[in-house]
Design a protein around this nucleic acid. Structure first.
Lengths: 245, 245
DNA sequence: TGAATAGTGTCTGTAAGACACTATACA
DNA sequence: TGTATAGTGTCTTACAGACACTATTCA
């Protein structure tokens, strides 16, 4: 825009995007963390943080595109479930100045990572990354910036939505079986779910289509399913909750 | 991210905050709009837009503080219901450059405005403001920037949450009666609700406390209620929806 | 008294929770 | 055959929806 920016010559906040990336491995919900660099000028040197960073106005067409780029850089995976979580901004959250971050949360199936370049050899080799079980993050040392709060908000949102949506399907590669899907619900929620009720609900919600029998090594093979619409999140009429809430 | 502290003088996106402010008047859900200035350098001259503007890093301690300031400037009201809606950012949404806005939505009781300075005489007298019924905004001329999309998202979120939360209570001054509260639900949802079911639900949700009879001019006075906790949104176990969803 | 609004009781359908049951594969 | 997992049937309970009913005030 060839426009005189006189009005726009005030101090602008720093703008970042952070992504809370979840995955299930070994029956545990895990989150991806990266380690901050160690330089003397760096904020929170060596602390663990959510993957993310500054918006690149030359490279990113939109906030979501920026989030996808950071996800790709860290995991090598291209199009998982990605949802905006919220934004956090203020004068004190980053020692380098007034900053605002746009936070996203993403779900990945473990198998996607097996096929993709390992996280250690991704586009930013200087930043060590690791998966960590969410419960250990909750009780571990604080994350950099306000990333602890962002992470807890993401976890809360994930667990809340799992009660009444098809979200956990995005934690599995297709095709998957109903017992596998139920397992994802149970891992995220941290409690067992009745099999019969789960099946009735999942099938009634009409977001799955059969895809032939799958033998997962269990004594009896199970029916495989795919999502009818990989881009749509389906809402259930009620939650899985016991009797209270 | 490997950038050094001295490396922060890259191009930063513009950062704004916009607020979608709802109110019910004359049995209609209304939204507050302001008119863009008319200068030759102005984006979307004379178009209607959501109230908002640039974050002032000297004045605003946080994004939410910034939203509260803009709300106060436009309505004279201080602490209504305020919730973050999401953020929109990209290279094309503002002709002045790459920009990201943090959107909030707010609910106000009509009476709050009667006591406050009128919107026309508020801190920004140069910007005409008006309340407009949401349905007419939906079919009217497009709003400035991507404010049409932001507004539609806010309306959708409001209507969705009204199905299963105590949100409409924030559209009323206290104390209010159950028939008044039911009316707010009906206005926002755009359909009638069964009286008996509504009362059972509202009282069972345990977010109201009695506050003596109120005579609203109806033949028979009704019980007045206040929120037990003015800062808490209460979730119902199921929605008001008929039989589908 | 009637009119108008506030507030209650009762029946029904839906779907979740609990849990016992049957079905199918492999060793 | 037994065993492990897949998948089904059935009973109960909670609660929303529908709607008819009673209660209280004022003109």
């Amino acid at each position: 825009m060839p426009e005189k920016a006189i009005d726009l010559d005030f101090e602008k906040p720093l703008t970042t995007v952070d992504v809370v990336i979840f995955m299930v491995q070994a029956d545990q919900l895990q989150v991806l963390l990266v380690q901050r660099p160690d330089g003397p000028q760096e904020p929170f040197p060596s602390a663990w943080a959510l993957p993310g960073g500054f918006v690149d106005v030359a490279q990113d067409a939109s906030l979501e595109a920026c989030a996808r780029r950071k996800l790709r850089d860290k995991t090598g995976v291209d199009s998982p479930y990605l949802e905006q979580l919220g934004s956090w901004g203020g004068k004190d959250r980053d020692p380098r100045g007034w900053s605002a971050t746009h936070a996203y949360f993403a779900l990945l199936p473990l198998e996607a990572l097996r096929l993709a370049p390992g996280t250690e050899t991704a586009a930013t080799p200087a930043a060590p990354a690791r998966w960590q079980p969410v419960d250990s993050v909750l009780v571990g040392p604080p994350l950099a910036f306000d990333h602890g709060e962002i992470f807890r908000t993401a976890l809360e949102r994930l667990r809340a939505k799992v009660e009444y949506t098809s979200l956990p399907a995005f934690l599995l590669p297709e095709p998957f079986t109903l017992p596998q899907l139920q397992k994802m619900y149970e891992v995220v929620l941290g409690r067992a779910i009745d099999k019969s009720g789960f099946r009735t609900r999942a099938l009634a919600a009409d977001f799955l289509q059969e895809d032939g029998a799958v033998d997962v090594g269990a004594p009896r093979p199970a029916m495989g399913y795919r999502l009818k619409d990989r881009n749509k999140l389906v809402y259930f009429p009620r939650t899985f909750s016991p009797r209270n809430i």
